[in-house]
Amino acid sequence: MQLETTPRDDALVVTALMDRIDAAIAIQFKDDLRTVTNGEAPRVVLDLSHVDFLDSSGLGAVVAAMKLLAPAQKLELAGLGPNVEKVFRLTRMDSVFTIHSTVDAAFDGVAKAS
């Protein structure tokens, strides 16, 4: 799976480097996301800026990954392209997830640890 992780402030940024999250890779995506987020970071920011297509299976994988996080962890989304954003909006999942326009926007206004 093509996931890149980067620690940032109090969070873990996970960048999905594939252009599609669909039925063909949804289960593997969920499992890999669970593996890389199995840590102490209270925030996980999932960067979907490389993803051009997400179907219902992909959406289900993102929701399942959110539910598999530790109770103290929160999954946030960033960088949704128009097609991916439309899926979240039409399914009203945009009211379930905190969605940021970019990864940098997810950290704007967040106090930095000194």
Rank of each mutant, 00 (worst) to 15 (best):
58 G>A: 05
59 L>M: 14
76 E>W: 01
96 V>Q: 04
86 K>N: 11
69 L>W: 08
90 L>Y: 11
70 A>M: 12
80 L>D: 07
60 G>V: 09
89 R>K: 14
82 P>L: 10
58 G>S: 13
54 L>V: 12
85 E>L: 09
88 F>H: 03
85 E>T: 05
92 R>P: 04
57 S>G: 13
73 Q>H: 03
78 A>S: 11
57 S>A: 15
75 L>P: 02
90 L>I: 11
55 D>N: 13
90 L>K: 09
88 F>C: 10
73 Q>F: 02
65 A>I: 00
61 A>L: 08
94 D>E: 12
77 L>K: 02
79 G>M: 13
96 V>H: 07
73 Q>D: 12
87 V>S: 10
87 V>K: 09
59 L>D: 03
61 A>D: 11
56 S>Y: 09
60 G>A: 14
83 N>Y: 08
67 K>L: 06
59 L>E: 06
69 L>H: 07
65 A>N: 05
75 L>I: 01
70 A>N: 12
90 L>W: 03
74 K>W: 01
66 M>F: 05
87 V>P: 10
66 M>C: 09
82 P>Q: 12
91 T>E: 13
91 T>H: 08
92 R>C: 09
60 G>Y: 02
72 A>W: 07
92 R>A: 14
80 L>T: 01
77 L>T: 04
68 L>A: 15
58 G>C: 11
67 K>E: 06
68 L>H: 07
78 A>M: 13
76 E>C: 03
69 L>M: 13
